[in-house]
Simulated assay, not measured.
Amino acid sequence: MARVAFIGLGNMGGGMAANLAKAGNDVRAFDLSEAALAAAKTAGCLPVADAAAAVDGAEAIVTMLPAGRHVEQVYVDAVFPTASPSAVLIDCSTIDVATARALAEQAAAKGLLAVDAPVSGGIAAAAGGTLTFMVGGSDQAFDRARAFLEAMGKAVIHAGASGAGQVAKMCNNMILAATMTVTCEAFAMAEKLGLDPQVFYDISSKATGQSWSMTSYCPVPGVGPESPADRDYQGGFAAALMLKDLRLAMAAAEQAGASVPTGRRAAELYEAFVESGKGGDDFSGIIRALKAGELG
């Protein structure tokens, strides 16, 4: 049994921490939310008073926080001053590449192993322990982090050096956003032209238009496997979070001089969708705005 610090018990982190505890680890959990701490306790974790208390004596320190500035603050205030020299730092947040690399460099200067390990899979996968982890860091850091990540996911893939996990995550989600928007456009257009959504699904899911957005996460209720569309677009992956990932991708593309016109258009569409007050809806809910002609 290993002692694990888990900092950040939101929709994703709560399920992830629970799976680490389920795997037999001694999980010391911290979050600013009392409700999140109570849920973590029910799941077998030990709630603690602050991040430093979680980090103290931990063999692995897992963070799952909203943005790079939050990760940096926790690392500077609690992790770097308190972590055992033998601990491995595992940041599962989705943050900008520059911050991920800078924190890895600071960790290395202090003799600590660190990886960036953003996730793909959503809330259900976090709870079910079936996430995919895209991991950036040295071979040694990856080897130390791997067992802890495997307790939370179905796939743990070493993407390369520090920051590579964040690069993989933002590029993956740029594909996802663009694919979902055009899938929604196609379903909306097919319906306007008199084609039944189920018939269109039956055809396109077996033809060249097939994609994960269609066959695993169909944006039309009652069509394909169960998805957030069947729950009035609640749960799943919030549009505001998709927009966050797209903004990170656009900033990285600008810094790298990469041409991403389709990704940029997807970002513009999600910007408008979120600004309309739908940021809490699942990102596939953009189909309703497209059907209503609210996005052009």
Results as ranks from 00 to 15, higher is better:
267 A>D: 02
256 A>R: 13
82 T>N: 07
22 K>R: 15
175 I>S: 04
29 A>Y: 03
23 A>L: 12
216 S>Q: 12
72 E>V: 04
224 G>K: 09
248 L>S: 07
47 P>L: 10
207 A>Y: 05
26 D>T: 12
84 S>M: 09
98 A>I: 04
38 A>Q: 14
248 L>F: 06
236 G>K: 15
262 T>K: 02
14 G>T: 07
56 D>I: 09
288 R>P: 00
79 V>E: 02
174 M>A: 13
203 I>D: 02
242 M>F: 09
73 Q>A: 15
192 K>C: 04
32 L>V: 15
8 G>D: 04
250 M>G: 12
58 A>K: 12
154 K>M: 09
87 A>L: 11
201 Y>M: 10
103 L>I: 12
124 A>K: 14
142 F>S: 00
258 A>N: 06
110 K>C: 12
160 G>D: 00
126 A>G: 12
80 F>W: 10
276 S>K: 02
266 A>Q: 01
41 K>V: 12
281 D>A: 06
168 A>K: 06
108 A>M: 04
25 N>D: 15
22 K>F: 08
52 A>V: 08
175 I>H: 05
151 A>I: 04
23 A>G: 11
172 N>R: 12
268 E>W: 03
23 A>N: 11
103 L>V: 13
274 V>I: 03
107 A>I: 11
155 A>R: 15
261 P>I: 08
164 A>R: 05
174 M>L: 15
49 A>G: 15
221 P>A: 00
80 F>L: 11
91 D>Y: 11
37 L>Q: 10
114 A>H: 11
70 H>D: 14
225 P>N: 09
191 E>K: 05
36 A>E: 01
237 F>D: 07
52 A>F: 03
107 A>W: 04
275 E>F: 00
254 E>I: 12
50 D>K: 11
69 R>H: 14
150 E>T: 09
45 C>N: 13
253 A>Y: 01
200 F>H: 03
169 K>V: 02
140 Q>S: 09
51 A>E: 05
200 F>G: 04
222 G>C: 06
265 R>G: 01
247 R>W: 03
250 M>C: 10
41 K>R: 15
150 E>F: 02
241 L>N: 04
73 Q>S: 11
173 N>V: 07
149 L>H: 10
162 S>C: 07
87 A>K: 09
47 P>V: 13
150 E>S: 12
100 A>V: 03
38 A>T: 10
193 L>W: 04
238 A>H: 08
24 G>K: 10
34 E>Q: 14
143 D>Y: 00
121 G>V: 13
132 T>D: 11
211 S>C: 14
107 A>H: 08
90 I>Y: 04
208 T>M: 11
109 A>P: 07
248 L>H: 04
31 D>H: 10
75 Y>F: 15
126 A>E: 13
283 F>R: 00
211 S>H: 01
159 A>F: 02
79 V>Q: 08
123 I>T: 12
232 D>Q: 12
98 A>T: 13
151 A>E: 06
143 D>T: 02
239 A>E: 00
42 T>R: 09
36 A>Y: 00
71 V>R: 07
194 G>Y: 02
211 S>P: 01
28 R>K: 14
61 I>K: 06
111 G>P: 08
237 F>Y: 14
60 A>D: 09
229 A>H: 09
197 P>T: 08
12 M>Q: 09
154 K>Q: 14
290 L>K: 11
217 Y>I: 04
